Computed example of a mutant assay.
Amino acid sequence: MKQKWIYSIKTMSVTFGLASISSLSLAAIQGLHFSHKDWEIACDNTGTCRAAGYQSDSDMDRPVSVLLERAAGVNSNIKARVQILPLAAATPTRQLQLQIASTPYGVIGLNREGIGQLSTDQTRALLQAVQGTSPVLFKNVQSRWNLSTAGASAVLLKMDEFQRRLSTPSALIRPGKKSDQTVLKAAAIPKIQIPKYQSGKVTQAKLKTAAGQQMIRKLQATTNEDQCDLLFSQNFMPDDVMTIYPINAQNQLVQIPCWRGAYNVGSGFWLMDQNRQLKQLVTTSGETFNKGQIFSGQKVRGLGDCVRQDQWAWNGKKFVKSFSSLTVQCKGFAGGAWNLPTYVSKVIYPAK
């Protein structure tokens, strides 16, 4: 049985169909994820990029992460935040001092989650520091957290490349005199309107029944074993069922378990008409369906601290991608220190 925990290697790059520079001005922006050493970056379909840096593996007892966020567009500024663990070490003052190469750069206030916003001057100093090897330290009277700079330059260069800032005055790495007219412009967040759908009675059937076997045979003809091996091996658990969700008078959504790995499970979701004719295979790595959306959350590593999330929304005709995010480092932050999306949208639910 194939194992479905993904992205276990530390240094990796995932690029989701990055278009050529010449066509980006007309084509939709495609998201990107890239990781190098102790830093990673995700850029989404609006052109916004989020770079996250962490402590080195030798400092795992004091997790720290910095998030550098920048929207597309010539005049967009970098916003910087810091997050630390354990939270108990942030009390009682809820303040950290930023120190770079033994020089103090002021105090950062923390909220109850251990997250603090850096000032403009602190952000500028941090950006300069992470491109070198000078120690970057966050500390209070009780503890100290060391931010690694390893991988930061490569990640910030990837941000400049994605946002088409290379050699322009607004570039973070090696700015130049190239015209700012080449800089990627921000795209609007797509809106997905979920129409009123028939939230009627959900039905279920055991997969070993005649109804379950009939559906399995139908889906086998439209799905391959790599996508959904349980459809073909039928190594189902005793409590596995086929679930059918009514969508409207013409459509229904069918869910059947597809695979099990060491740390994850995935279900297939198929959109079918009332005659059980396939209209769309949405995903074979889904988990749940609720309020017109299919949700998927997969552990990226065996530790379970990193997560990949995907969502699809019903738009009245089919299910379309509504959200994707991926973190591959995490470094002690359960579920990830930050949300690093590669695709975002605004889902509009039907009025009650």
Score class of each variant (00 low, 15 high):
Thr223Tyr: 06
Ala187Phe: 05
Pro238Ala: 05
Arg217His: 09
Val183Leu: 08
Leu231Ser: 08
Gln181Phe: 10
Leu184His: 12
Lys185Asp: 02
Phe232Lys: 07
Thr203His: 00
Phe232Asn: 08
Phe232Ile: 10
Pro190Arg: 10
Gln193Cys: 02
Ser233Ala: 07
Phe232Arg: 12
Pro238His: 00
Tyr197Arg: 14
Gln214Ile: 02
Pro195Asn: 09
Lys208Leu: 02
Val202Cys: 01
Asn224Thr: 14
Ile189Lys: 15
Lys206Ile: 00
Lys206Asp: 01
Ile194Ala: 11
Leu219Ile: 08
Leu184Val: 07
Ile216Pro: 06
Val183Met: 06
Ala187Ile: 02
Ala187Glu: 09
Met237Tyr: 03
Leu207Phe: 09
Pro190Gln: 05
Gln227Tyr: 07
Val183Ile: 15
Lys191His: 14
Ile216Ala: 13
Lys206Phe: 06
Gln214Ser: 14
Leu230Pro: 09
Ser179Val: 05
Asp229Lys: 01
Ala210Leu: 12
Gln198Leu: 05
Ile194Pro: 11
Ser233Val: 04
Gln220Tyr: 05
Lys185Ile: 10
Phe232Pro: 13
Gln198Ser: 01
Thr223Val: 15
Ala211Met: 11
Val202Arg: 07
Asp226Trp: 13
Ala205Leu: 03
Lys196Ala: 04
Gln227His: 06
Ser199His: 07
Lys201Asn: 05
Lys218Phe: 01
Ala211Asp: 13
Leu230Ser: 09
Thr182Tyr: 09
Gln234Lys: 15
Ile189Cys: 01
Ile216His: 06
Gln204Trp: 03
Lys185Thr: 13
Pro238Trp: 00
Ala205Gln: 12
Asn224Ser: 12
Lys218Asn: 15
Gln213Gly: 11
Thr222Trp: 04
Thr203Pro: 00
Phe232Thr: 14
Ala205Pro: 00
Ala186Gly: 14
Cys228Tyr: 06
Leu219Cys: 01
Asp180Pro: 07
